[in-house]
Write a protein that binds this DNA or RNA. Structure first.
Lengths: 340, 340
DNA sequence: CAAGTTAGCCAAAGCGCTTTGGAACACTCT
DNA sequence: AGAGTGTTCCAAAGCGCTTTGGCTAACTTG
């Protein structure tokens, strides 16, 4: 059932039927009702390929997926995706993942824009002066950044959480508990979120007249193993930290293991706070000692990004609106006063 | 730069240019070279929307993503996706994720097929007599199943690992070590992979004249918490199992925690084997006691599924070929002889 | 050398939609 | 009555590609 057939059986022109269906004003209410009815009755659905060709709109949102033999997709991605799906489902929006060589995402961005494969894209894990943002900005496709960049000479729409604030609060709590030697096990230092978190910790320390030594900060990919290694190194120093702030639950698993291996205890010898993106399959309250966290659901962020992308596509949202979500600090058993 | 312009500047018809570019035989080699050259020089790329409309092919593969407030996407998904991306990238294949209400995926399958949004789909986590398979089979879209169904009255192409064999081997090893009381902490019992794994364990037990009691098998969603709970229940029985086979590393985390909470030890009091899908962020050798596993890279499976989908799209692969990969049993410190 | 092939090219008709530029009609206003 | 103003609809021209059904010229074949 296509437009031609439908319009023929209604004895109307394709023009009128098309307009009736798409809500244009130059068609009488009565006709519109007739058309709508017939369309529903016969299950008419406009052919998306044809519509695309005519309008250039695809009804899909895009994401360029960095891949490569040594590139691992972040497990956070799947949770973000859940959220995106939650929203997209109810709006019949599909998501196109375009795999790209992690060393050359630009070509892929250019391709999907030139081909009009998607109406909007989102960008995640931005870095300072991220070239992808400049690129999509000049290419002129609607986009939202999940996270933030820095040092760009233009504004852009984004959704981020208050990473600096969160880690500032976490560090401040530990300082209030009397800890003098803090350490930070962070994610990839080239990504903005990690920079912001470090900044938060430093700011808290500075307020107490302290600083974060080079040796007390580790930036690594967020795996259990890296968490373990970083923690061991820190804890095997002459004057080990008495508190650690850690950028992910997965790394925190490794930290906990390291502490055990060294025969120390949480929170007796070490207080631990980690960031929790809220995974359904790994919950901080279920750590051997319930873990204090800075918590922000990455899934909700996914839903919100989808919502805003949809708004931008339909022209409801414009300009470079940034949105920063506050982060909860949830205190559980893994923190205590500094050992004497 | 479109076909019209290109053909005009070559003083050829659109027909000829199109055919030259698409490798049809009715064009002379010399002309073809001229056309290819000009196309490359001017960076001509056929408009995919137009091509789609004309051919009905989209150059994308699809996946229907079950979503819903209480539906969590499996973290395995992201690893599978990595593999898919590895292959797809080098072939400029995009992946379309169509979010669907988890209770009604059928509508979405029908939509993407009717709309010709994708050239092929893959289906994951199949159940026995899975209706999705019957559906895509009758809809006539090329597809590959990642995993297997059972009790269907038609054959279908799939890629699966030898879950039964893997768990049979794992159980057999434990039996050989003298264990008499085995337990299985499995994934969702409605999914075929879980059924196969249970079957493997039962078969090994049967060979030794034993059976797996109802109470010694738990089927749960694969989270750390569920692993913990299942293990606690098992271990708090009067005659607790001396060995556990577990369907995922994530649940194994919980098992390890439960064992510790109860003051027992691995492998002294309990031997543990788990299935490892090979996550980069959580490795069995880094468990407090290195974990014995049945190992199979889900990422490689993703790449292979993409490869076969591409082959089916281009007509290179046909029929209902099933492919079953063997699984490695990797013995590490978490297994030992049964306690006396 | 006439008839039949074949190689190489082309014009035009789709694919199914949106959108432009009227046309027809009824109605109001001076 | 004639001009002006909406309202409601339509024919046809795109969008940019593929593919059908020739057509021409050159090349075999008996």
């Amino acid at each position: 059932m296509n437009l031609k057939q439908l319009s023929h059986m209604l004895s109307l022109s394709q023009t009128t039927v098309s307009r009736a269906l798409n809500g244009y004003p130059e068609v009488s209410e009565e006709t519109r009702r007739r058309v709508m009815d017939a369309a529903k009755r016969h299950g008419y659905r406009p052919n998306p390929s044809a519509r695309r060709l005519a309008t250039g709109k695809s009804g899909m949102i895009g994401y360029v997926l960095p891949t490569g033999a040594s590139v691992d997709i972040d497990p956070h991605f799947v949770e973000f995706l859940s959220g995106l799906g939650d929203y997209a489902r109810s709006h019949e929006l599909d998501l196109v993942l375009s795999p790209a060589d992690a060393d050359d995402e630009e070509t892929t961005y250019r391709r999907i824009v030139a081909n009009r494969q998607v109406d909007a894209v989102y960008i995640s894990s931005p870095r300072p002066a991220d070239r992808r943002l400049a690129l999509v900005n000049t290419l002129g496709i609607p986009f939202i950044v999940h996270g933030r960049s820095e040092g760009l000479d233009f504004d852009y729409p984004y959704l981020d959480i208050d990473n600096e604030g969160a880690f500032h609060e976490a560090a401040r709590l530990l300082l209030q508990l009397g800890h003098k030697r803090l350490a930070l096990i962070n994610g990839n230092e080239r990504e903005t979120f990690a920079i912001h978190r470090e900044r938060g910790v430093r700011r808290a320390l500075a307020a107490s007249g302290m600083t974060l030594g080079e040796r007390h900060i580790r930036s690594v990919a967020m795996t259990e193993e890296n968490g373990y290694r970083a923690a061991r190194r820190l804890l095997e120093e002459a004057e080990p930290p008495t508190a650690i702030v850690c950028s992910s639950l997965i790394m925190a698993l490794g930290v906990v293991r390291a502490v055990r291996d060294l025969g120390r205890a949480i929170p007796g010898d070490l207080s631990l706070v980690a960031h929790d993106d809220v995974f359904p399959w790994l919950r901080p309250e279920n750590f051997p000692v319930p873990l204090s966290t800075t918590r922000s659901s990455i899934r909700l962020a996914g839903a919100r990004v989808a919502e805003r992308l949809a708004a931008r596509i339909s022209g409801l949202e414009e300009g470079a609106r940034g949105e920063v979500w506050p982060v909860d600090l949830v205190v559980r058993g893994s923190v205590a006063g500094a050992p004497v």
